Each structure stands twice: as C-alpha cells, then as structure tokens.
Simulated assay, not measured.
Amino acid sequence: MKVKNLVLQYEEFGDPLERLALHEMEITPLQPNEVLVKMIASPINPSDLIPIRGSYSHRISLPFIAGYEGVGVIVDVGKNTSASLIGKRALPLRGEGTWQQFVKSPSEFVIQVPDSFSNDVASQLYINPLTAWIICSEYLALKPGDTLLMNAGGSAIARFFTQLSNILGFSILLVIRNEIHRNELYELGAWKVFNSSTANINEAVMDVTGGKGVDVSIDSVGGESGELLAKCLKQNGRYLSLGLLSGIQVDWEKINKEFGIPPDLFSLRRWNQLASTSRWHQKFTEIIDLILKENIKLAKINGKYKFKDFKHALHHTQIPGNKGKVLLTHDLNDIRQQ
C-alpha cells in the first residue's frame, strides 16, 4: 500500500491563484539522513508568493513545490537517522517545499518543537523570526540608541522587528499605508509610526531625529518606497534590502549615485548556506527561548483552510488591511491510500 502525496506546485511564473495547482505524486524513498514529516499546518507568507510571481526566477527550476515553512509530525526516518524521532513534532526545513502533505527534510536541519507550543505558533517559527533575529542581533548588531526605519510596517516581520527593539534597545520607526495597524504597533513598542498616504515620510523622519536621519533603513517593499528610505538615512547610515513586496527592484545605481549607499541585501537562503549546523540550531534555540519567556509573540491566526481549499486561503491573504496569518492545514482524512 502506497501513500499518495498531494503537493501545491507551479510550472510557470505568474499570479499564484492562476499558477498554483494540486498534483498527486508518489513519495520517493528516503535518503539515509532524511526524515519524512506529515504536515499539520503551513502559513502563507509574502516570501512564499513572491517567487511564484517570478521575482527570483533566476534561481528557481520549474516545476517547483511552494512553501518555505510549517510544522508537522515525523512519520518515517532514513536508515542512518534515529527512529526515536518518529512521532515528534518538527519543522521540516531546508528540504522540499512545505506546501504538501508529506515533506522530506535533511535530519540535521529538523527543528523539534517544544510541547508547550501550539501548532499555530510552531508553524511560524522559521521565516520571520529567524530572519529578524539574525539581522538585529548579528548582521546589523543593533544596540541601544540606534534608530531603525522600516517600511511595510503592518507586516508580520515588522511586528517581529518591533518586539526585538524592546529586547535589544534600539528605536524603530515604521511606515504604514493602513491606519488599522497603528495602535497595535505602538503597543508592541514602536517609537514612531508614519502613514505614507498622509505624511511626507522624509520630513517626518527628519523632524523626529533632529534633522540627522536614521542609522539604518530596511526595505521590504522595493521600488519607490524603498528608494524613499534611502533619503531618510543619516550620513554613513546603512541601507538593507530585505524583501520585494512590490515586485519591483530598487534602483541601486540611483541610490548609490545620489546617496553613496552600496547595495546590501540580506538573504536568509544565503545565510543558511554559510552557517554551520550548530550555529543554525543555536539561533533557533535563542528564538524559542525568547518565545517561551513571552518576550516575543507571533502573529495571530485569522484564517485556517484545508489544503485543497488553497485558493480560498490565497484570496483571504489579499484582503486589504489583513491582520494575522492564514494557514493551510492538513488532517489524517486528507491522506489517500491505494
């Protein structure tokens, strides 16, 4: 009896609603150092959707299974992997795409989940927490007195940066486009929140920084929104490109010419390639510890959809001012056997 695996895959770049499709595939045998994880829940992040639209087509070979994070239960292991892992909840990372019912992952990169974590929390432990924590504590080494300006202030990762500002002592200024986010961001610890539809961001930033500008700008949007952040930097300030929500690259030549700012792009994928296995696990230990101590709270879930209802889930993520995460979920009844 073979278990069939349903996967969400795209064969061409474009609108995720049009390009993503369910495919039924056989599960190939595990390599000696792999584990097989039966997925429980996977969030829909902007970083999951941007590649489907083709922004990173240079490094994606089609067809491609979507999804970068999620939580599940280990149901099988390769011959060189301890059978004691079977039955453990885990994050199957740095292997196959996670938008499928069964995910294979190298055992050395599997992150086990504390029993006290709900599946909602566990499913979100990778992309935003690891990225923000590495950037703040290591890549930028932010410290008390530093000022950080970030666009896409209503995003889940901006909320994570905001909470980290309380822990590391830096001040964060956030740019939003929807007032629905303002009060929550202040409650999380933001120093200043600016609405780009009603305020001149450069003037507002210069006003609160006494005309000096900020130490660091982090762009998650790209295009003109990203270029605006460069204008808000102090002399010799640092500009970091993190995301591409607009799908439009910033004009690096223009930024370098007008502001003397060299290109600086943080890539979690690149960091993963350079980090040792022990360092990888240490960073997760630090993140998990922060959450266990309730110093950090992850996004609330405001929508859960069965895996086969992925189009409804994608529509939900496009609701203006959407707060919280949308999850793709699985249960045992989804498994087809023949």
Rank of each mutant, 00 (worst) to 15 (best):
F259T: 05
H58C: 07
L268S: 07
W99L: 02
E34S: 06
S137R: 14
M39E: 01
D215L: 00
I255G: 05
V175G: 07
I335S: 11
R89G: 05
K2T: 03
K283N: 09
E184D: 15
I287W: 00
I291D: 06
P129G: 02
L327F: 04
N151T: 14
D289C: 08
I86Y: 03
G97C: 02
I86N: 15
P43W: 00
A152L: 14
V216T: 11
L140V: 02
G243L: 08
K79M: 12
P92V: 01
E11I: 08
M206I: 06
G154T: 11
I319S: 04
I172S: 07
I287S: 07
A204D: 07
V75H: 08
Q338T: 14
A152H: 11
V121C: 06
K231M: 12
H58M: 06
E108Y: 10
Q235I: 11
K79H: 09
D215A: 00
E224G: 10
L174D: 09
W252A: 12
K257C: 12
L188N: 05
T162H: 09
V250Q: 03
K4Q: 14
K38W: 13
Q338L: 15
Q235C: 04
G154H: 10
A21H: 13
L85I: 09
L174C: 11
L125C: 10
S118L: 10
G211E: 09
I157K: 05
P16K: 07
M206T: 04
V250M: 13
